[in-house]
Design a protein around this nucleic acid. Structure first.
Length: 317
DNA sequence: CTCCAGGGATGAT
DNA sequence: ATCATCCATGGA
């Protein structure tokens, strides 16, 4: 089958798909298969080029050509050089900037992103993957690409009519209730996710947080990954750890509130990108050091040395 | 403000 | 094989 080539300079597909923003892509051969909306897609990277193909489409309303769809989804139009340049200059950020070259914040469909992040609460990445795939397999539409099967994310109306038992079988636990309640809000039109695109950041956050199962962290994820609000700075335990260790090493009582205020101003107009880079850098660094060391004490002492070296908190007040 | 629910992958032993 | 750890939201 023919592969379409798309120029993709300054892009790293592996990092982008492994950075905790999207959970359903699966490694196959030299690339990944997944769904962009209801289109099944295979994508692999060869240097500065993406090679892609899509599954057969049911005859339906006309859609843009594949390179447009893929380029938009992976945000190949974001000017990464400018974004990197807008990050603050400090040791933690500099390290993250260097190690995450080519990582992009992608543009996900709104309902799919919202629903997936409701499922993410209190879960780790491996878990979220399973839930996301289970929901797709059970309620989504099956598409074939090559000899792979991929599943689109089910519409809100479909999730709204799922039984509690069905959702529990997708390992949602107590999230089932929230997901179904939010699905009802969305499918009834009471929550109009598309119309919210025109709201200010503050208004959008308020609307999202009013949905069951959505608090500030998940609202910021959805703003960043589905609404292209590149300032939004989700604070999860990883980022909180990074902020405390690298930016406020000697401040014992930095409240969550102060951390939030700091992150909203210090990282600037592309704070969400900065967050994603810090997050991915911390996670991959941790994975590496865990797999290459047998002692957890070694990691602790490294952290302590890093804290001692970093004199940023005094400068930042 | 604090405490807790809830559960499966993951890493440590 | 067992045991501890990870995690966001919402409600008491």
């Amino acid at each position: 089958m023919r592969l379409v080539e798309i120029p993709a300079p300054d892009f790293d597909l592996d990092k982008t798909l492994d950075s905790g923003q999207v959970f359903h892509w699966e490694k196959v051969g030299d690339g990944f298969v997944g769904a962009i909306g209801d289109l099944a897609v295979y994508v692999e990277q060869r240097g500065d080029v993406l090679k892609v193909r899509c599954g057969a489409m049911p005859a339906r309303s006309p859609r843009p050509p594949l390179p447009r769809i893929v380029g938009r989804y992976f945000a190949l139009d974001h000017s990464l050089a400018e974004i990197r340049d807008s990050f603050p200059r400090d040791p933690a950020m500099n390290a993250a900037r260097d190690s995450c070259r080519g990582l992009r914040i992608i543009r996900q469909p709104k309902w799919e992103c919202l629903a997936t992040f409701i499922c993410s609460s209190m879960k780790q990445v491996a878990h979220i993957r399973q839930i996301s795939v289970a929901l797709r397999k059970r309620f989504g539409e099956q598409r074939r690409i090559g000899n792979q099967l991929v599943y689109s994310f089910p519409a809100a109306a479909r999730v709204a009519q799922a039984s509690r038992k069905e959702l529990l079988e997708c390992k949602l636990g107590y999230r089932a209730k929230n997901l179904r309640a939010t699905a009802r809000h969305v499918s009834s039109g009471q929550a109009d996710l598309e119309a919210w695109s025109t709201l200010s950041d503050a208004e959008l956050r308020k609307q999202l947080c009013a949905l069951p199962g959505v608090g500030p962290k998940i609202a910021n994820c959805v703003m960043l990954f589905a609404y292209e609000r590149l300032r939004a700075f989700p604070i999860d335990v990883w980022i909180e750890r990074v902020l405390r260790q690298r930016y406020f090493p000697r401040r014992k009582k930095m409240t969550a509130r102060r951390l939030r205020e700091f992150s909203e101003t210090y990282f600037g107009e592309n704070g969400g990108y900065a967050q994603q880079y810090l997050f991915h850098h911390a996670r991959t660094g941790e994975r590496r050091s865990k797999s290459t060391s047998t002692s957890t004490n070694r990691n602790k002492s490294m952290d302590q040395r890093a804290r001692g070296r970093d004199g940023l908190s005094a400068a930042l007040g």
